[in-house]
Write a protein that binds this DNA or RNA. Sequence first.
DNA 1: GGTGATTTGTTATAACATAACATTATGAGT
DNA 2: ACTCATAATGTTATGTTATAACAAATCACC
Lengths: 165, 165
Amino acid sequence: MKPEKTTPPAPVGFGAHDHAHCKTEAMAKAQAVCEARKLQFTPVRKRVLEILLESHEALGAYDVLARLAAEGLGSKPPVAYRALGFLVEHGFAHRIEKLNAFVACSHPGRAHDAAFMICRDCGLVAEAEPQSPLRRSAGAAGFQIESMVIEAEGLCPACIPEDKA
Amino acid sequence: MKPEKTTPPAPVGFGAHDHAHCKTEAMAKAQAVCEARKLQFTPVRKRVLEILLESHEALGAYDVLARLAAEGLGSKPPVAYRALGFLVEHGFAHRIEKLNAFVACSHPGRAHDAAFMICRDCGLVAEAEPQSPLRRSAGAAGFQIESMVIEAEGLCPACIPEDKA
DNA sequence: GGTGATTTGTTATAACATAACATTATGAGT
DNA sequence: ACTCATAATGTTATGTTATAACAAATCACC
């Protein structure tokens, strides 16, 4: 449930990693991308990304809103939804459809499809490279994919009971 | 020589097909599976499946409910949600997370992952075989997948503008 | 420092979903 | 057929997620 310290292996989110580094790096990256693309990385947007980055759990828009409200940064749903929309639109966060919730992106900056593994026990969400053949088979069917979500729900390594590992 | 794929997992939903056959076959299959598993294929459940089968568009629970209500089969949300839950649980329908909506399953009877291509223009939803490598890479990461959704949104062959085909 | 676009604040409501409990139907055993 | 247990449906109420619409403030740029 609680990440320890080491350096990040493949699927980001599960297992030990330097989460402080994880956060500061993501914030720095977002900052840089916003400057490069002349996007306004406003206080609300910045704070929402920080909130998402605090853990690898997905947060609902209303969870985020509650945090903002507690800090006097906005108290009505559209404030949260707009900030989250901005973050998703520019690749700093992803929406997890199965949970109606949001997670910070594990490698922002470049556009990419994403695949997620969602632990139904501890709530951690790990982002992986999708490599889905669906893009190819969609092409064959004449379908033009504009966005794709891949989400798997189950048990993360830490939450699998001893006798079933 | 290139191994041409013939018919097998052609994405069901787009393109011309004998939809009447599509419907009656799916209903017959559901009927048979229910008998085999001693499930109660009640009027409400049957009717909801018929409603979903009327097209390859995804229907929201409240759309389904409106249809039921018009026929005197139930008028409160739980009626629709329960019937849809039954159909999804037993593989006769799928939930499309991106749309908060439901489609009839294109090949019910056997348990299976599903991948969907959702046309944002005409609303048709085609079901394809997923063949996602995520199951393998999840295994490598020690994650036990219990359910998986793959959903691509874009334009179906019929809705792609001439000049971009 | 004016101005046009963007962002935020706010009200109101729409859309989606389920908890809890009463009632009715089913079916299994006698 | 009767009874009990189980499963399904009906109903009330409410909870959760999301957006439309418009006003006010702020920003980017000349």
